[in-house]
Design a protein around this nucleic acid. Structure first.
Length: 476
RNA sequence: GCCCCCGUCGUCUAAUGGUUAGGACACCAGACUUUCACUCUGACAACGAGAGUUCGAUUCUCUCCGGGGGUACCA
């Protein structure tokens, strides 16, 4: 759904068209305020903006179909008066029974029975208290159109049954409202999921009728986007975690990364290239270049693309965007940069260049900087970090503690510390670098993966460093 | 059943009537690094099958196979 919005948006921006956002809430049972809010929040977060429609207005409103019933009633009446639609009294049970009796498969669909009802028959149905639905009369000929993505598509005559546009109770259906609104809102390009492909011939016919009764000027161009697949060979649905935008955001996707990845699903900006900005996408995007075959959502690739975009952020931007994640993880005191303490900002600013190149999601920042921000005197090593502590850890820590105790506060600097420890542990102590620095890193960060060691030592300072080394040694 | 769509490495894709079929992610090996990450080098890996057109098909056509969607008084 987001990918569809993205392609529509990119196509509209590329062609300097008008992007219209309309809500098709004709099935009010399943359209909730909550789902609308989520859609809007998602688009806003992504920066996908529209020119006319919900919340922004425009010349062809209202943009909620639930507020346009009078319009649909009027058009339905015109279609009926012109003879393009007719009253249908058949219930689905009756249709199924007739199909069965005639030896047709159950899935054959509507048989056109009510097309030829006489006035007497209709009157009889009404006398029974039955009310008619309104059906569109499909012509007995092949229907073809040129899909923007798939080329010419032809449907054989007779393969699309007459379809209902208004329920017996007067409720208009999507089959009517969608083409009517597209006509009234002067939509000339429709990009939608390929699941709507087989309903397109019905709409082609509808446009012909709408033109004849003066409601539509043109038939829009259609482009049917391929699905995005999830696990196995199933279309991604709203329930799948992969399609949950907010979940991705929670994990630390930034909009640039997610948008870039989504764009890659069915489209390519050019040979040997897959990282780009939305401005570049708009500049290059042409629906006709979209591939027709479905793509699988690959979270690993998405994450890798996200990492590229995180690295492209300015340091300041990176920090500001990270703060909400840090706050959520209890690592800092506020959820926005300006409300942080001076100490927090100082530490984070120092840590940024160390952390930014090694996270792929903003959610990973907390783990990287937690030990730098905290003044705890002991950090229990994570299990995988503890595994890195070899038998020599105890001796190494002793040596490190005695070496570092000697360092005056004013000389507690990255390069100096590096030099001192290398001399004491590696050159004089005879330990391999891996064995020498491993225990120190685990003591200071508690993790197997951490920002560079000596920079970290400088950031947390002498007292905390020594305390952590001492306490790890006690807890070996 | 009928109608429609789709088919290049595991995944996303590029290109082409004649190429060693390219890139990215993932994976594996190596270099760098105190670890991890970043970066770099290398390895692995694809035109679904069969006919036809052609001097030559991954590319054009057809058939088949495989996958998907539709066949609603849902959208």
């Amino acid at each position: 759904m987001v990918r569809t919005a993205l392609f529509n948006w990119a196509a509209a921006r590329h062609t300097h068209g008008t992007f219209v956002f309309r809500i098709e809430d004709t099935d009010n049972a399943r359209d909730t305020q909550e789902s609308l809010d989520q859609i809007i929040e998602a688009l806003e977060w992504l920066g996908i903006t529209w020119d006319e429609g919900v919340n922004v207005g425009g010349p062809d409103g209202p943009y909620f179909q639930s507020q346009r019933t009078d319009i649909y009633k009027d058009v339905a009446q015109k279609l009926f008066d012109a003879g393009y639609a007719y009253e249908s009294f058949s219930t689905s049970d009756e249709i199924a029974e007739r199909n069965k009796a005639a030896g047709r498969p159950a899935a054959f669909g509507y048989d056109g029975y009510d097309r030829t009802l006489t006035d007497e028959q209709k009157a009889a149905f009404r006398a029974e208290g039955r009310k008619p639905a309104l059906r569109i009369k499909m012509p007995d000929e092949d229907i073809a159109f040129d899909d923007l993505i798939r080329g010419r598509i032809e449907f054989k005559a007779g393969s699309v049954p007459d379809y209902v546009i208004v329920r017996p109770n007067g409720d208009p259906l999507y089959t009517l409202t969608n083409p009517v609104d597209d006509a009234l809102m002067r939509i000339n390009v429709v990009l939608r999921g390929e699941d709507l492909l087989s309903s397109t011939p019905r709409q082609i016919v509808m446009y012909d009728y709408l033109k004849k009764i003066g409601v539509a000027q043109v038939t829009p161009l259609f482009g049917h986007l391929p699905y995005v697949m999830g696990q196995g060979n199933k279309k991604l649905s709203k329930r799948d975690p992969e399609s949950n935008l907010f979940l991705h955001r929670e994990h630390g996707f930034i909009r640039e990364g997610l948008l870039n990845y989504l764009a890659l699903l069915g489209w390519s900006i050019g040979p040997d290239r897959d990282v780009f900005s939305m401005d570049e996408m708009i500049e290059k995007f042409d629906v006709r270049d979209v591939k027709a075959n479905p793509a699988h959502f690959d979270i690993d690739k998405a994450t890798a693309i996200n990492a590229e975009h995180i690295r492209m952020l300015t340091e300041d931007d990176f920090l500001r965007r990270s703060v909400p994640y840090l706050f959520k993880d209890g690592v800092v005191s506020a959820d926005n940069w300006d409300a942080l303490t001076g100490h927090e900002r100082e530490v984070l600013t120092a840590a940024a260049p160390l952390v930014q190149p090694r996270v792929r999601l903003l959610g990973e920042v907390s783990g990287m900087v937690a030990s730098l921000l905290s003044d705890d005197e002991y950090i229990a090593p994570a299990p995988d970090a503890r595994k890195q502590l070899k038998a020599s850890a105890d001796e190494v820590l002793t040596l490190a503690i005695s070496t570092l105790s000697e360092v005056p506060e004013e000389e507690w600097k990255t390069d100096h510390l590096h030099e001192l420890l290398t001399t004491a542990l590696v050159e004089e102590g005879g330990y391999k670098p891996r064995l020498a620095f491993g225990p120190v890193r685990v003591a200071v960060s508690g993790r197997r993966v951490s920002p560079p060691l000596f920079e970290s030592l400088q950031i947390i300072g002498k007292d905390v460093t020594l305390a952590r080394l001492t306490n790890l040694q006690k807890n070996l």
